[in-house]
Design a protein around this nucleic acid. Structure first.
Length: 262
DNA sequence: AAGCTTCACAACCGCCTCGTA
DNA sequence: TTACGAGGCGGTTGTGAAGCT
């Protein structure tokens, strides 16, 4: 048996609020406050609405000093920074942006910022895509399957894990694949974390791994989903691996698409 | 001009947390 | 200590507007 609903859905109005309803709610809250109970408010105010709906309407639209749309560059940066640090805790993010509501920020994120954040495919991703196409040349959608965002990091950093990709600030991989399928590469990586920084110059084979930034720690979840589907299409677990050793050609081929290394 | 698709955002749903009796 | 109910929250859906073919 599920939880009892907060109100009788058959007796309350749903859908968009009319200007009249907005006025009633606004006037009532301004005169009486919520009287400590949103559930009881619609009856007292004379609204045929669910208490939760009234609360949402007030918080997201009617209360004073609400700002809608027109997010500034500065607000974008704040949202992005907070998203990286705390994830989808929209109410916490909203608390740092005066006049903004969690719903507004959530919508803005889902429709604009998420796309803005997605970088072009990395050289590593391009390389893996080409490898995949070469293994299954006739697979019709191979080149259209979303790739995870891959980034190279030194083995020591991965193996000392858990690896936190949030703090990778600049990676410049250069990978090429030759005719026989082997890869050569040179990588310059500069990473900054809260309290340390390091850089490497060397071959991927020696000291770099690819890290799938579509892991649950990173916000490119739509790429992760695409990756998971790709795996399941070929009978692999939907548990998406997040680390791949670039140098292990044999293992890569046996898995068709990047191998699992933990 | 009409039909279709995409986008933006308001609103809803249902789970979780927290206060209180 | 426990059970219950209201509020809070994030994910998802619905809908109208705008853009495209």
């Amino acid at each position: 048996m599920g939880r009892a609903p907060c109100c009788d859905k058959t007796k309350v109005k749903r859908g968009p609020w009319s200007p009249e309803e907005d006025n009633i709610l606004k006037n009532y809250v301004q005169q009486h406050g919520t009287s400590g109970s949103w559930i009881a408010l619609p009856l007292k105010a004379g609204l045929k609405r669910c208490g939760k709906s009234c609360r949402l309407r007030w918080l997201n639209y009617l209360r004073p000093n609400i700002k809608h749309g027109g997010f500034t560059e500065e607000e974008d940066h704040t949202i992005l920074a907070l998203y990286h640090n705390i994830g989808t805790r929209w109410s916490v993010i909203a608390s740092q942006l005066p006049g903004r509501t969690d719903n507004d920020i959530k919508n803005y994120w889902n429709t604009k910022l998420k796309k803005k954040l997605s970088p072009p495919p990395t050289a590593a991703a391009t390389y893996l895509h080409s490898r995949y196409d070469s293994i299954l040349p006739n697979f019709p959608v191979a080149s259209q399957v979303p790739l995870p965002r891959l980034m190279e990091v030194p083995a020591e950093n991965v193996e000392n894990g858990p690896y936190d990709p949030y703090f990778v600030t600049n990676v410049s991989p250069s990978i090429s694949s030759n005719a026989n399928g082997s890869s050569t590469s040179t990588t310059t990586t500069t990473t900054t974390t809260n309290n340390m920084s390091w850089s490497t110059n060397g071959s991927v084979e020696d000291e770099a791994f690819l890290v799938d930034l579509g892991s649950e720690l990173f916000p490119y979840d739509d790429h992760l989903n695409g990756f998971g589907d790709l795996y399941s299409n070929f009978g692999y677990s939907s548990d998406v691996p997040n680390v791949c050793n670039v140098s292990d050609e044999h293992e890569q081929q046996s898995m068709m698409y990047p191998s699992v290394r933990y």
